[in-house]
């Protein structure tokens, strides 16, 4: 078994300080966070963290249990890339005169699915959305034309197998959870379970 990219999805209460509480779970183990995104989730009032790390599966599993143990965390899932639909967004600032002179660029952009967000006399900002390799490729393509600024967002990811958190939340809201709870199950149904 080797290290691979895992995406950890954490459903939490909206609580000040929780980002730190979760982040230190990684730094304590000297694990570098490749990307981290916090956003609202499909359920009002519930936050969703999307964290990407490169690690061994065993480490990620233990880490998710430790994260889930935090009082304000409802659930932590971890997935490999083939279990996810994910995107990152990137912005590129290039000098407008360079772009205007070299018509090729326009075709280049079409090729990379980019669009112009702002076009000014002095600079133009392009945006593209996709996997890391796609946004990386556009950097390469724009570099010869004097890339002024580049920034990429964290990964946002949808879990293919997930039915969302609405039903799950009901279990948490009940003080005595039901028997169907998908927990403690990794032993006898290991293949079906993608959470702890």
């Amino acid at each position: 078994m080797s290290k691979q990219e895992f995406t950890i999805t954490v459903y939490t209460e909206n609580q000040i300080g929780l980002l730190n509480r979760i982040a230190i779970m990684f730094s304590r183990r000297k694990i570098n966070i490749e990307s981290l995104n916090t956003s609202p989730s499909e359920v009002e009032g519930i936050h969703r963290f999307t964290i990407v790390i490169n690690e061994f599966e065993d480490v990620v599993r233990k880490l998710c249990r430790q994260i889930e143990k935090q009082v304000e965390v409802l659930k932590a899932y971890f997935n490999t890339n083939d279990e996810l639909i994910w995107q990152e967004m990137a912005l590129y600032k290039v000098p407008t005169d360079e772009i205007a002179e070299k018509v090729k660029v326009e075709r280049l952009l079409r090729e990379y699915g980019a669009r112009a967000v702002v076009i000014r006399k002095d600079y133009t900002v392009f945006e593209t959305t996709g996997h890391r390799e796609e946004t990386d490729r556009l950097i390469k393509a724009l570099e010869p034309f004097g890339l002024i600024e580049f920034v990429r967002s964290a990964r946002v990811a949808i879990i293919k197998d997930s039915n969302g958190f609405h039903e799950k939340l009901k279990e948490f809201e009940a003080s005595e959870p039901g028997e169907e709870l998908i927990e403690n199950e990794y032993l006898d149904k290991a293949s079906e379970v993608f959470t702890m």
Partner: peptide
């Protein structure tokens, strides 16, 4: 709600 003291 986000805290389950005893596992099932």
């Amino acid at each position: 709600r986000s805290y389950r003291p005893k596992p099932i």
